[in-house]
Nucleic acid binder design. Structure first.
Lengths: 106, 106
DNA sequence: TTGACATGCAACCAAATGGTTGCATATTAT
DNA sequence: ATAATATGCAACCATTTGGTTGCATGTCAA
């Protein structure tokens, strides 16, 4: 997985907001995601492309609409692999515990 | 705390590498941090300034040297407040557990 | 089938970013 | 005192980024 693409995608507040929206309600169309934002549809399209390239968003075409779905896997991966490094020992222990709870299935 | 500054600071691979270095050995001088990097000292200085503005790095002047110290607090804060949102239930439960282990001292 | 709706594509633009070079300043060692 | 070392500051540059506008295409409904 491309850490860098994910970090760069998360660097923009508008893109984080789009992820928030998808988190609140998954599977929205481009039009729905544009609604209420102070940006043109094309700007939103570009942001969604960036999120897609970072695998943070997946899409499905349905007729003339395009549905967008959030994918939390890369975020979790980064929390695990990168952020985890800088955490206190107590958090490290929890990470181990989590791995055990999840059955070490990776 | 300024989420945005932290996310933007983390968006650059060179800056993440600088954090890695400080994590490996804390309290390095600018010169030490430059060592072995394919960048001029001034470029590194700029990156360190970005990290400093995001409170990811703190500095202390010592004679003609400037020592740099990593500060993991903003990273943990983001892991808690933002990334946590997107995590699976099992991870949410762990976050609660962690809070209890830490004595809920916030 | 014709119009309305949802999205795609491309050119263009301003501002931010990441980098450089050159020179200034402050501190330490000889 | 002087030279070497460590950092600071500013101007400059190329590229990337985040945004726009205009037009094209595909799909649904009347």
């Amino acid at each position: 997985m491309d850490d860098d693409a994910v970090f760069r995608a998360l660097a923009d507040a508008n893109r984080r907001r789009l992820l928030d929206r998808l988190h609140a309600r998954n599977g929205q169309t481009l039009g729905q995601l544009c609604d209420g934002l102070a940006m043109t549809r094309q700007a939103v399209t570009k942001h969604l492309h960036v999120l897609e390239e970072a695998s943070l968003v997946a899409t499905r075409r349905q007729g003339r609409e395009k549905l967008h779905f959030i994918n939390a896997v890369p975020i979790n991966a980064i929390a695990e692999r990168w952020i985890g490094k800088f955490q206190q020992p107590v958090l490290g222990a929890l990470s181990d515990l989590k791995r055990r709870l999840e059955g070490d299935s990776q």
